[in-house]
């Protein structure tokens, strides 16, 4: 018996969510009194996973798997879960994790709970807490099947070090036919993505026009943050569509979300609510964003933000 975590490596490197998934898996394994197995594909340094509690690290290395394929990967996870008699399989919420988790659940005929945000509150019955209604509520879900698949929400459980001596095992899975092939990837290189960023700096219509985006870019640069915007901003063509966040745009679950000149409409907030700490800068004290924010400044972005950038630069210089 075991808990299995799929610890995804992206271009050979683990992202924080892989460590979070392993930390979570460790907790569940302890609750069940079984050991934790981590599966990773084409990772440069698979041994890193031992620091978060993996007792066994299964390494798959195969050129064919260089470009991600959901069906093939889901099948490999199934092979390992069966081999390791895994009762619980944990998958993170990266775009690839979201793609493959439902396939894994069907392959294993397992009950699947997505958006899980906490360790099981009970293991018999097996109950987990999930986010629902765009973070406006939580839902305690019971999983009744023998094997259970958990989709772990990003930035919800945290990363915990748990140094273990892990055994490592090379595994050569059978590779099934896919049916879907990658033709090309279009990715801005070197930029922090909204999915990975600890901090997201977001601008709304209050910034008046695309010519003022230097402010947002400079602030993002000091904070090593990803850029985002409200929907009208991308609809007006001020910013690329990839930066639009909210209910109909990208979801944000960062540690810090800074909203500048954004009113805080319900559809905007629905998509960014999962962020831990929210800051708003807006001229209108009645703007709904102040109801959801943790910290706020009532003020003009064109005065507040340049000063914030200067002060942050000084702060960074002092604290690095």
């Amino acid at each position: 018996m075991s808990v299995l975590v799929f610890a995804e490596a992206s271009e050979g490197k683990f992202k924080k969510i892989a460590f979070e998934a392993v930390s979570y898996g460790k907790k569940v394994a302890e609750q069940l009194g079984v050991s934790l197995v981590a599966l990773t594909i084409n990772a440069d340094n698979a041994a890193e996973l031992a620091a978060y509690g993996a007792a066994k690290i299964i390494k798959v290395n195969n050129e064919v798997l260089k470009s991600f394929d959901a069906k093939i990967t889901a099948n490999i996870i199934q092979q390992v879960a069966e081999k390791e008699a895994s009762q619980v399989v944990v998958i993170d919420s990266s775009s690839n994790g979201l793609y493959l988790a439902p396939l894994v659940a069907v392959n294993l005929n397992a009950g699947f709970a997505s958006n899980v945000m906490a360790a099981p509150s009970s293991t018999t019955p097996f109950v987990v807490k999930r986010k629902a209604f765009s973070n406006k509520a939580f839902n305690n879900t019971e999983i009744n099947t023998e094997v259970k698949v958990i989709g772990l929400a990003k930035n919800s459980f945290g990363i915990f070090e748990n140094n273990t001596t892990a055994s490592e095992e090379d595994f050569s899975p059978e590779i099934i036919a896919s049916g879907v092939s990658s033709v090309g990837v279009n990715k801005a290189s070197g930029k922090v993505t909204i999915a990975d960023a600890e901090i997201v700096v977001s601008g709304g219509r209050g910034l008046k026009g695309p010519e003022n985006w230097g402010l947002i870019e400079d602030l993002a640069e000091v904070l090593d943050a990803a850029l985002a915007c409200s929907k009208p901003v991308s609809d007006l063509g001020w910013r690329p569509h990839g930066e639009h966040v909210g209910q109909t745009g990208k979801p944000v679950a960062s540690n810090l979300y800074i909203a500048i000149g954004i009113s805080g409409a319900i559809q905007h907030v629905a998509g960014i609510n999962a962020s831990k700490v929210k800051v708003v800068i807006n001229t209108d004290p009645e703007a709904p964003f102040f109801k959801v924010a943790d910290y706020g400044i009532v003020g003009d972005a064109f005065e507040v933000v340049p000063e914030l950038i200067e002060k942050l630069k000084a702060f960074k210089a002092q604290n690095s």
Partner: peptide, 15 residues
């Protein structure tokens, strides 16, 4: 031919 969102960009897929 489909394009899908991936973290940080888009990918074109054929099926």
């Amino acid at each position: 031919t489909a394009s899908k969102e991936i973290d940080g960009g888009t990918e074109t897929l054929a099926t």
